[in-house]
Design a protein around this nucleic acid. Structure first.
Lengths: 242, 242
DNA sequence: TTTTTTGATAAAAACGATATTTCATGCTAT
DNA sequence: ATAGCATGAAATATCGTTTTTATCAAAAAA
């Protein structure tokens, strides 16, 4: 009996560690991260046969994982032409940012209106953790960058966690991830701006003071700022192909 | 050579007629319609083996079609426990309606702002067709109900067709289909209210006069009305299970 | 040259079979 | 009587192969 080709890494154990119950979910998560991180470039073809060997799983497992990634518009497919990573464009990012402003604002207003003591406590805790890391950020930027990313996300999640509308939260999450993909593709150092902590502090105070207009305004400008950064990246790069 | 089990209907030819390029797309479309129409009840298990025989295709084809239906939240899955039709609840419908009001309003405002002559022409045409059918609707309701549904959708699509934000349009479409599922499940006769034509006329006029506030208000109340209808349906039916 | 046709190759889609897991049923021990 | 365990049937998830389709390049025709 010939020995099977060794897969590039052990997906089965990685799956259990990641909390995935099935191989499909494990492949899904892994591919998702690879696309969001830019390891798979926009527009790149995702060949089932190739991925099959890479992960050491069957073809239909790969296909099903790719199909599920279509939910978040991270993967597209057309007729008999296989799968590709979703393309990017400046216009697309503008649309994403526009939608984010709308949804993030509404979610925040809803949370401010309905949030209870637990909600406030969660924000305080998340803000505290984030602040601690941001203190260290000035000294050793590369060291805590990854940690900052997680805590930053946790803070923003905490802000809107009292919004009960699941559809709103779902759409917001999709857009948030998409936006992050653009930032990571553009190698934007999201921690670079000096005023990042000041912004968080301002948002934090406005929310705790239950001032919806002020908080919305701050979040809106926060999102607007990213558009300018990405727009610069796209200048001088007319089109991207496979 | 034994003759294969005859499938319940010829999917391959139905696929080509429906414009589907692959079996997966054909199964996808068919299942989608079956769920939206209520032929598959909320919460119902969708057994792969059963569907496989019904459609006369392979198991992975079914699985992939089901996976893609997760994009629109029409199907859910939970590790090793198969697929089921998404459950329904009054709260879910309220969330959907709330989101629809927001997105529909924004899309309409954007269209009114950016719409050109072609956009106006499209609305006029769609409105005209819809009006013609609504005249006949009073006499022979059952006869033209299906046609009215299509034209009604076409009219509302035309209204927002000048909104360039693809994400907005995508989310709106998902919510619109979800909303329709609730209405169809509740056996609501969407053509019943006498004032349906009057509403459309009012929206039409407000849009053509480029009055965004007025048009948004009208669309908002149009959506609000459905919530009342669905809420009645849910009263007296505590929970639904498999 | 430019356009068509043809053939070869690579990839995607679809299938059928196998291995695992879940769930329900009935049995046993306390 | 009931909680817990064992057992088997049903259904899921997964795999490797077969069939179909698209792509590309070279040859033939215009």
């Amino acid at each position: 009996m010939p020995v099977a080709e060794p897969p590039l890494y052990d997906l089965a154990t990685a799956a259990k560690n990641g909390g995935a119950k099935t191989m499909i979910e494990a492949v899904f998560s892994r591919l998702r991260e690879d696309i969001l991180s830019g390891r798979h470039q926009p527009g790149e073809r995702l060949r089932v046969e190739q991925l099959r060997k890479e992960f050491g799983v069957g073809a239909s497992t790969i296909r099903e994982a790719l199909s599920r990634l279509m939910s978040e518009s991270l993967v597209t497919t057309e007729g008999q032409r296989g799968f590709r990573v979703s393309a990017v464009s400046l216009q697309d990012f503008r649309d994403i940012a526009e939608m984010r402003k709308i949804l993030e604002t509404i979610a925040l207003r809803s949370s401010i209106e309905h949030g209870d003591d637990d909600w406030e406590a969660g924000i305080v805790a998340a803000y505290h953790r984030l602040s601690k890391v941001e203190e260290r950020l000035a000294d050793k930027p590369d060291d805590v960058a990854s940690e900052w990313g997680d805590l930053n996300q946790a803070f923003h999640d905490a802000l809107i966690s009292a919004c009960g509308n699941r559809w709103l939260l779902n759409f917001r999450k999709i857009l948030h991830d998409q936006s992050n993909r653009y930032l990571r593709l553009s190698l934007v150092d999201t921690t670079a701006p000096r005023n990042v902590h000041a912004e968080h502090e301002a948002i934090f105070k406005a929310v705790m003071a239950r001032k919806p207009d002020e908080a919305s305004e701050l979040v809106g400008t926060h999102i607007d700022r990213t558009v300018g950064v990405i727009a610069k990246q796209f200048e001088g790069r007319p089109e991207a192909a496979e």
